[in-house]
């Protein structure tokens, strides 16, 4: 069993003037390769904060984080950027595509930052768009695409670099339920293909796609349950780890 994400006592503290706010109090969690995890919890419980730290967008105030065997908590900005580029695929609630670039270029972007040659980039980007079913929308700009299509472009961008994990923060939050289902099917497929996926969601029916549900409350892990559903490859072996 290969551990991809290993956090120990992660704390995130925001200081606003005289007030201290612990967004995360002590998160210790381990996620293995090819797991499909849903992170749930009420608004403000720290889901996004945790996702950002796991995705190396943010750094914890204290605690230790190991991603794919590399200790991330000591890395500087540029090293983190490189990790994001190689190891992480992000999918956001608001898609976050570059508005002036077409789908192909949006998907190509991570490869530009990893310094890949043009022909290779185009090949991989086309491939990724094919995987999300957008081969006939490659030259459309985001404003010429539907919400679902935009999210597919975002997913193609997330997986084009063949990352260790795909992180999605409420990926269906801005979509109607039918389109949301289609997007979740896409994640299911990616999981089947061997990807490690972490999805933040409010919705139970979205969480049902995952095989493991981590619930947060007030910056702590409230529960960590393996549902088994959708868990195709590593059934039952993961230890649910409760905070403290």
């Amino acid at each position: 069993m290969e551990e991809i994400i290993k956090t120990k006592d992660i704390v995130k503290l925001y200081i606003m003037g005289v007030e201290e706010l612990y967004a995360l109090k002590a998160i210790t969690v381990t996620i293995n390769r090819n797991e499909y995890v849903a992170i749930m919890g009420p608004s403000g419980s720290g889901k996004s904060t945790l996702m950002n730290i796991i995705g190396c967008l943010d750094t914890p105030t204290s605690g230790h984080y190991e991603l794919n065997g590399q200790s991330v908590s000591e890395m500087d900005d540029n090293e983190l950027a490189q990790i994001r580029n190689r190891e992480i695929g992000f999918v956001f609630q608001t898609f976050n595509l570059l508005p002036r670039s077409n789908a192909l270029h949006n998907v190509e972007l991570p490869l530009i930052y990893s310094g890949m040659s043009k022909s290779k980039r185009i090949e991989l980007a086309e491939d990724a768009l094919l995987k999300v079913g957008l081969q006939d929308r490659m030259f459309h700009k985001p404003n010429e695409l539907s919400g679902g299509q935009r999210q597919r472009v975002a997913i193609a961008r997330a997986l084009v670099n063949n990352p260790s994990i795909i992180l999605a923060d409420e990926p269906t939050g801005n979509l109607d339920s039918k389109t949301g289902d289609e997007i979740m099917e896409l994640f299911d497929n990616l999981h089947q293909l061997g990807n490690t996926i972490i999805v933040v969601t409010h919705e139970d029916f979205i969480a049902e796609h995952a095989h493991r549900i981590v619930k947060l409350r007030d910056g702590l892990i409230e529960s960590d349950v393996i549902t088994g559903k959708g868990f195709k490859h590593n059934s039952g072996k993961t230890e649910a780890q409760l905070a403290n």
């Binding site: 995705g55 900005d77 950027a81 994001r84 976050n96 991570p110 930052y113």
Partner: peptide
């Protein structure tokens, strides 16, 4: 926002 997006997908300083 664009800068944020670029950084999120791996653009360095």
């Amino acid at each position: 926002k664009e800068i944020g997006i670029r950084k999120a997908i791996g653009a360095k300083r």
